[in-house]
């Protein structure tokens, strides 16, 4: 309903949408191990893109996958751009990230990064969308422009890998505890 009012030119509806949706979109970007400033930029870029293509939303369709499809597009663009950044620039960015206070996502993303490390990019994306944004399989399929079957398969593979990795870690911890 808010989206329809936004399309009709109601600014209060747009503000309400920004307030409601931005925290979830922000979590989606923050889960990618980017700095707080970067996540803010990505969020703003996403809203500019949403605003530009707001006519492509149809009231009969769910809004959340539409938002995430655009957010994902912004994230992919950002990722490609960051690949083009030279090694030296990357080092500088890394330095500024560690120097500036409150720039990182306070450990939680580090944990997530380590946890999702064994997954492929597409499996990781599906897990992030399911867990970070709380979308259903159908919504994730819509947001990633793929089929529900493909999303299910990726989620299943990802959980299998995570189970194996976490079981191994738990077994290793038990062994070291016994040894001490």
């Amino acid at each position: 309903m808010l989206m329809v009012r936004y399309q009709q030119g109601d600014f209060t509806a747009a503000t309400a949408l920004i307030e409601r949706t931005s925290p979830r979109l922000y979590r989606f970007f923050a889960a990618q191990q980017v700095s707080r400033a970067h996540a803010d930029d990505l969020l703003q870029e996403t809203w500019l893109r949403i605003h530009k293509v707001r006519h492509t939303y149809r009231p009969s369709e769910p809004a959340l996958p539409w938002f995430y499809a655009i957010a994902r597009h912004v994230r992919v663009d950002h990722h490609r751009k960051s690949i083009r950044v030279t090694e030296g620039e990357r080092e500088l960015q890394a330095m500024s990230k560690t120097i500036s206070p409150g720039a990182s996502n306070a450990g939680s993303s580090d944990d997530l990064e380590a946890l999702l490390a064994p997954l492929s990019a597409s499996e990781r994306e599906v897990i992030e969308m399911l867990k970070v944004t709380g979308m259903s399989l159908e919504e994730v399929a819509r947001a990633t422009s793929s089929t529900v079957g493909s999303v299910k398969q990726k989620a299943h593979r990802a959980y299998k890998k995570l189970r194996v990795m976490l079981s191994r870690e738990a077994a290793g911890r038990e062994r070291s505890e016994k040894a001490t």
Partner: peptide, 9 residues
């Protein structure tokens, strides 16, 4: 647990 953290805009 890994996802819990400060994610407020």
């Amino acid at each position: 647990r890994a996802l819990r953290g400060p994610h407020d805009v």
